[in-house]
């Protein structure tokens, strides 16, 4: 319990540091969004001071001392108020993020968890049945699949399954005609649209989990406590799961934490290829359109999700490994 509280305290501290950095860094950059907008306008003709003032007001250029700005910013962050998007004017940034986040969390997040669980289970099987086809098939297949860059796999899948064969939709999170609601029909439609991007992520990340788990478990299988458990006549299943796999999974949790943290920010390419309306897609749009409020909010989200994932994994470590609790 004290361990969890300590980690929680650390999380709050790092969160504050991340939020503050997110405030400081844009202010260290030369120029401002207003300058950029004015420069764009200036290409069409001279910009009068009144237009300039109007633009600055419209963009909500912050005024006052840096301290006032910081307090106002913190207040806004706490209320999830990130201002108005430039690209999707006049929509609130928070609305845009709230619209994109669930798609990414559900599709990419769920697939990441599934890939980890599935890969770990296959890895356990492969290590336990070392040297048989149950070992060679997943290890060779896994390394083969994870050798592809994942945007390339994505393109291949879109081309063959989506375009040539037409079995799956190639863009969007649900059909253009469907109305979001909680019916089975709509859920089915969502799963149907998520199939290709999910398959891409699963295929390309599964191999890594299989290999990681297999290799650490081969090591723990050679450990003395496994030999001793066998000497004491424990059942094979008990030895494999509670002794060998239970210890082998610990180093892999770190990788899982990093993968979880990367869910929000790392789905950019896949979402781009499949035109999936998630955070990655939004971020891409924000960057290409120099949509500063949106970018800032998204960067903050990415940082926060990495921190949260790490926190989660550390708590998990505390539960799974008594040695870390001290």
């Amino acid at each position: 319990m004290r361990y969890a509280l300590r980690k929680l305290g650390l999380l709050v501290l790092t969160l504050w540091a991340a939020v503050t950095l997110n405030f400081v860094i844009p202010r260290l950059m030369p120029g401002s969004p207003a300058d950029a907008a004015i420069a764009k306008l200036a290409q069409n003709g001279p910009v009068t001071p009144s237009v300039q003032a109007a633009i600055e007001a419209q963009l909500g250029m912050p005024g006052g001392s840096i301290w006032d700005q910081y307090v106002a910013y913190l207040n806004n962050v706490i209320h999830l108020d990130f201002g108005v998007s430039y690209t999707f004017f006049p929509q609130q940034v928070s609305e845009l993020v709230a619209g994109a986040l669930p798609w990414t969390l559900i599709m990419v997040g769920a697939v990441t968890v599934i890939a980890f669980v599935l890969g770990t289970l296959i890895g356990i099987g492969a290590a336990w049945k070392r040297g048989t086809w149950m070992d060679s098939l997943p290890t060779v297949g896994g390394s083969f699949l994870s050798a592809f860059p994942y945007f390339w796999t994505a393109l291949l899948i879109v081309f063959f399954l989506g375009y040539v064969l037409g079995w799956f939709p190639t863009s969007g999170a649900y059909s253009a005609t469907a109305v979001p609601n909680l019916s089975w029909e709509f859920l089915g439609d969502v799963l149907y649209h998520a199939a290709l991007p999910a398959a891409t992520i699963l295929l390309t990340s599964l191999g890594g989990w299989i290999l990681g788990m297999r290799n650490t478990m081969i090591n723990t299988l050679g450990d003395d406590y496994v030999t001793f458990a066998e000497a004491n006549g424990l059942r094979g299943r008990t030895v494999a799961i509670r002794y060998a796999a239970r210890n082998a999974i610990l180093p892999n949790l770190t990788g899982f934490g990093m993968a979880l943290g990367g869910v929000v920010g790392g789905s950019l390419l896949v979402e781009q290829v499949f035109a999936y309306p998630g955070v990655g897609y939004l971020l891409f749009n924000a960057v290409t359109n120099q949509d500063f409020p949106l970018m800032q909010a998204l960067f903050l989200m990415i940082t926060v999700s990495v921190l949260l994932a790490n926190f989660l994994v550390e708590i998990l470590y505390g539960v799974l490994d008594p040695r870390t609790r001290r």
Binding site: D223, D224, Y225, T227, F228, A229, N232, G233, L234, R235, T238, R242, Y243, R246, N247, L250, L320, D321, P322, R323
Partner: peptide
Amino acid sequence: NALNPVRTIAHHFGDIFAA
């Protein structure tokens, strides 16, 4: 090193008795 670092001693006994 002959003991599983993530299980208590009671569990070690329990595993053998159960097996």
